[in-house]
Design a protein around this nucleic acid. Structure first.
Lengths: 340, 340
DNA sequence: AGTTGGCACTCCGGTTTGACGAGTGCCAGC
DNA sequence: GCTGGCACTCGTCAAACCGGAGTGCCAACT
């Protein structure tokens, strides 16, 4: 059970299987890794590992393949993060430093992550619900049509159009702008929405209608968790490398269309805490052949969203974990800077 | 050549092949469509059609398959748009009427289009280059940090952060805001960018630095054609229904990652003008097995972007064409309304 | 002239068969 | 507890095989 060599054998099996995609036999094993023992010995270990459920043979007289449990032991005990190369680090920082706004950061990271890991990468847009209001701007496009712009601390900007029943003059608009910002600027959006709800009661009677309209869309925009569900996906072409289409590619392609599913897959791991979900450990039985490596990101331990990669259970865990962590750290840093 | 029955035979072949995905033989043809002649007669016609290059047999003693040229004739002469059902029309209008902003319109349409056609749908975001500036807003987040918000006639909103060397007071900021809007509001962005470039020369000396900074990011945002390249994609899961993975699915998956490629695929068809590009007619030889049905959209013949579907050459052209046209019309209408 | 039934031919696709070899489990000996 | 040897299992690959769908052509019919 706590036999060092058996663990070595398991590690060798995982590594070889990931590299070759083929069941690995005892002979090939001792050749490719300097195990210093004979194939027969390895076979005994393999038999034991199989009894304990770490590996499995597709059929008699085939090599062995790691089970989900085997991968689990591998990532928990056996794997060390594969350090990023200098070139990779530099690629990450130059690419992300060049991002001009929030959307750009997200889109560039997801692309980067898929290229680094050669897997399908997923990045959740920073969630709205935990951010604070930075500023609200009102712009009169016509006398009866306002554009309401909501700027959040994460850098996200929401805009909405409001139609008014009666025209509003500039001074009233300025007054309204001040009032709205007074109750909401710097406040978490849930609290801001509540405070704004009271606002129509506090303004001059002739302002009530326009205030009500503006507050209406603001509250709606703040409680609109639609953008919480936004995710960016990249690297679907990497699915082409998967072997089995029907059991692996198709269900995943379908999942990728459903953003809600993706969010559930990513989970809610803390900032800087890597989550690895292997095969059946995940929430969807159709995705029993796929694993997820994910982590949270956000400035200073403040969880704003998650990002990660999904791929076949047979994937390069050490490499993926390192890439996911590296990208998450950079993204966190960028968000922190942009936010002073 | 202008033989009615031969054309009937071609149409029957296309329809059957699209439905069954299998080469269609003379016997099955007369059974499934009431052609009123014997298989032997049909065979003669098929031989002629093959001589003229409209159909092709994969190998001796297989049925016939339409060539790209055959599909071309089919869509040009033989196909009538499959009218949308009432339910479909209603689905389109209720879904799109519920969209809250531009991004929402694009995302909902692309999804809708992929569901209607069961193909991969692509929608280009409205291009920036042909729109006019509606308003520029400046918001002081701190005394030395401005958020510059650019609102365009299409409803697109771009935001940029500016760091100033020296703090700016509110009255100066208001002045600057007025000046910027005076030269740019209502003007096409190319012209607006040019006009803004002159602005720093026209302001009071102590305003030059801040003006220069603001104008800098505005001009950059206006000439940034990055957002011209933005496209939304949906329905990749439908690729799973494709037969051949390597020749059809993989190249397409790769193309879908490259937005530039997608834009080229969509092409630049005029508003309300359906473009059908069949197999090798397209610009990429790797995509010789896929067809594109696309059209432009925009209010009142004003081309703002393109949308369409891509799929195997063997696709339901009448249905796809009808869906693409219907969605494009609704999107155009919505953009028109939101823009008064 | 155009259409039809008949017929011989081609060739694909699925299935069967058999040889091969990789890999195993077990055992006896070191 | 490790190792070499050995008999055995079973999947994979290739060749061989066969059935059937579909064709082209031709002679006869309308």
């Amino acid at each position: 059970m706590v036999d060092d060599r058996k663990l070595d054998v398991l590690r060798a099996i995982v590594e070889d299987y990931v590299a070759t995609e083929e069941p690995v036999g005892s002979k090939a094993l001792v050749e490719r890794h300097g195990l210093g023992v004979s194939p027969a010995t390895v076979r005994n270990d393999m038999a034991a590992l199989e009894d304990e459920g770490y590996i499995h043979q597709p059929h008699t007289s085939a090599g062995r393949v790691p089970t989900d449990k085997g991968y689990r032991l591998f990532v928990d005990k056996l794997a060390t993060l594969k350090p990023m190369s200098v070139a990779e680090r530099r690629a990450i920082s130059t690419l992300l430093d060049g991002a001009v706004d929030l959307d750009d950061v997200v889109q560039k990271s997801v692309r980067l992550l898929s290229q680094l890991t050669r897997q399908v990468a997923i990045v959740q847009y920073p969630t709205l619900s935990r951010s604070t209001v930075r500023h609200v701007e009102l712009v009169a496009l016509t006398p009866t049509r306002l554009m309401v712009i909501l700027i959040l601390s994460t850098g996200r900007v929401e805009q909405r159009l409001v139609e008014l029943d009666a025209p509003v003059v500039d001074t009233d608009l300025a007054e309204l702008r001040v009032a709205v910002n007074q109750v909401s600027a710097g406040v978490q959006i849930a609290a801001a929405a509540a405070a704004l709800g009271e606002l129509p009661d506090a303004v001059r009677p002739e302002q009530v209608d326009s205030t009500r309209a503006v507050v209406g869309v603001l509250v709606e925009a703040m409680s609109d968790h639609r953008s919480d569900e936004r995710v960016a996906v990249s690297g679907t072409a990497n699915l082409a490398r998967y072997g089995d289409f029907d059991t692996a590619v198709r269900p995943l392609l379908e999942a990728l269309e459903e953003h809600v599913v993706l969010l559930k897959l990513l989970g809610e791991s803390g900032v800087d805490a890597l989550t690895v979900r292997i095969g059946h450990e995940g929430p969807y039985s159709e995705l029993a052949a796929t694993s997820v490596v994910a982590t949270g990101y956000g400035p200073q331990e403040f969880h704003l969203g998650s990002l990660g990669v999904v791929g076949p259970t047979r994937m390069d865990y050490p490499g993926s974990m390192a890439a996911v962590r590296a990208v998450a750290r950079y993204v966190s840093r960028i968000l922190d800077e942009g936010n002073q």
